Simulated assay, not measured.
Amino acid sequence: MQTASTNICEILCNKSICEISLLLNILRSTVSGIITKWNQLGTTATQPRRPLKMTGPAHAEAHSAQKSTTVC
């Protein structure tokens, strides 16, 4: 018995990005992004985002240090 992923692979393997886009009715840029993500990370799962910027006293201290070293 074949699984759904086997059937999809048989249909989409060896197809171009444009052909996959037309078959699935999604944008070429989306297909390209998914393929790139798979090749780089080996997964299509969402990855953690970058940490939030500093806020509060730490931000004010860092900001004032940057201002004092800037030469106009």
Rank of each mutant, 00 (worst) to 15 (best):
Q2H: 03
Q2L: 07
T3S: 04
T3H: 04
A4D: 02
A4H: 02
A4R: 02
A4I: 01
T6S: 05
T6V: 02
N7M: 10
N7Q: 04
I8R: 03
C9L: 03
C9Q: 03
C9S: 05
E10V: 02
E10Q: 11
I11K: 07
L12D: 05
L12R: 05
C13I: 12
C13E: 06
N14R: 10
K15I: 04
S16L: 12
I17P: 00
I17H: 07
I17T: 08
C18H: 09
C18L: 01
E19L: 01
E19G: 02
I20R: 07
I20Y: 00
I20P: 00
I20D: 13
S21I: 13
L22P: 01
L22S: 12
L22V: 13
L23P: 01
L24I: 04
N25I: 06
L27A: 10
L27I: 09
L27S: 06
R28C: 08
R28S: 07
S29Y: 12
S29P: 01
T30L: 03
T30H: 06
V31D: 02
S32I: 01
S32N: 12
G33Y: 01
I34V: 09
I34L: 04
I34K: 03
I34A: 04
I35P: 00
I35F: 00
I35A: 05
I35N: 01
T36W: 00
T36L: 03
T36A: 05
K37L: 10
W38K: 07
W38A: 09
W38Y: 06
N39W: 11
N39Q: 15
Q40I: 08
Q40G: 04
L41I: 13
L41R: 08
G42S: 11
T44R: 04
A45C: 04
T46C: 02
T46P: 02
T46G: 01
T46H: 05
Q47W: 08
P48V: 07
P48G: 03
P48R: 07
P48E: 11
R49H: 12
R49E: 13
R50D: 03
R50H: 13
R50W: 06
R50Q: 11
R50A: 07
P51H: 11
L52E: 05
L52S: 12
L52W: 08
K53V: 14
M54I: 15
M54K: 15
T55W: 09
G56T: 15
G56V: 13
G56K: 13
P57E: 15
P57V: 15
P57A: 15
A58H: 07
A58I: 09
H59F: 12
H59D: 14
A60N: 09
E61R: 00
A62H: 09
A62F: 11
A62Q: 09
A62T: 10
H63S: 15
H63W: 11
S64G: 03
A65F: 06
A65V: 09
A65C: 05
Q66N: 15
Q66D: 15
Q66W: 11
S68D: 13
S68T: 15
T69N: 14
T70K: 12
T70E: 14
V71C: 02
C72Q: 10
